[in-house]
């Protein structure tokens, strides 16, 4: 059963009285790219944040690489994981945020080196070497000494991707990575993501970029009102949506 990188079984989440996730079931196979689409408020981002336990799941089960997220099962009892254990799980899951969230007091290079130095306790030489290679890979080898405030949105997001990759994750989560970018900067970030998908990274991408979903995605899940409405291959779902709500949404964004 551990053939799935991510497996969600009837996942529920509510904030106070608002039910944000009302029973999500889905699987992501290793090396697949899953695109999560749907109107705002449909729970896509919340689901993504449950995967690395930034949000706590209220009911159901969520597994990453066969491991239960946030809890340890002993018999039929669930034990909450300690803060350090949660942190250890998160090492293997990279996340890219809509607002980049680069560390403002560090240069691009320091941003990428920070987690390997502190979390994996790597030597400076090793961390620096990999950070420089990763910045090269996202096309920012010459910007390693720049602070986030000196970089464009697209450049910041590419540094953020390099920062996540520095931990050599087995899964990458993208939370609307291009939504805060000027239109002409979207392409450079999507190029990096496309390259990453080609290299075999397992990715879950919350996005409104239907072109990217069609071209790069191995699966597409349409969510609305905290539920999975429709799922399938991106080309099929986008060309031939079955559900009325999917049709209505796609007619607005395509």
């Amino acid at each position: 059963m551990t053939t799935h990188m991510v497996k969600a079984e009837n996942v529920h989440k509510s904030f106070g009285h608002v039910d944000v996730l009302k029973g999500i079931d889905l699987q992501v196979a290793p090396k697949d790219v899953l695109c999560l689409v749907g109107p705002s408020g449909s729970g896509k981002s919340t689901f993504l944040r449950c995967i690395n336990h930034l949000e706590k799941v209220d009911a159901g089960r969520l597994y990453v690489d066969g491991q239960l997220v946030g809890y340890r099962q002993a018999g039929d009892k669930l034990h909450e994981l300690r803060q350090k254990e949660v942190a250890a799980h998160r090492r293997d899951i990279g996340m890219v945020f809509q607002r980049f969230n680069l560390f403002g007091h560090m240069t691009a290079l320091q941003n990428v080196m920070e987690a390997p130095l502190r979390v994996r306790r790597e030597s400076k030489a090793v961390a620096r070497d990999r950070a420089e290679k990763l910045l090269d890979r996202v096309g920012l080898g010459t910007k390693s000494g720049s602070y986030p405030a000196q970089l464009s949105g697209g450049q910041q997001q590419r540094v953020a991707i390099a920062r996540a990759l520095a931990m050599e994750p087995k899964l990458m989560l993208f939370d609307e990575p291009t939504s805060a970018l000027d239109p002409e900067l979207v392409g450079e970030v999507l190029d990096v993501m496309r390259d990453l998908a080609t290299s075999g990274m397992t990715m879950i991408v919350v996005t409104h970029e239907m072109g990217f979903a069609r071209e790069v995605g191995d699966a597409l899940v349409f969510m609305d009102d905290g539920m999975v409405v429709e799922a399938g291959h991106p080309r099929d779902v986008l060309a031939n949506p079955q559900h009325a709500r999917t049709k209505a949404f796609l007619s607005k964004v395509l």
Binding site: R90, R91, A160
Partner: peptide, 20 residues
């Protein structure tokens, strides 16, 4: 978002407070 990004990288609460 700064603390969130730090947590997502696997840094502990203490590291996040001190370093970020």
């Amino acid at each position: 978002g700064q603390a969130e990004a730090s947590h997502a990288l696997g840094m502990t609460k203490g590291q996040t407070m001190r370093r970020i």
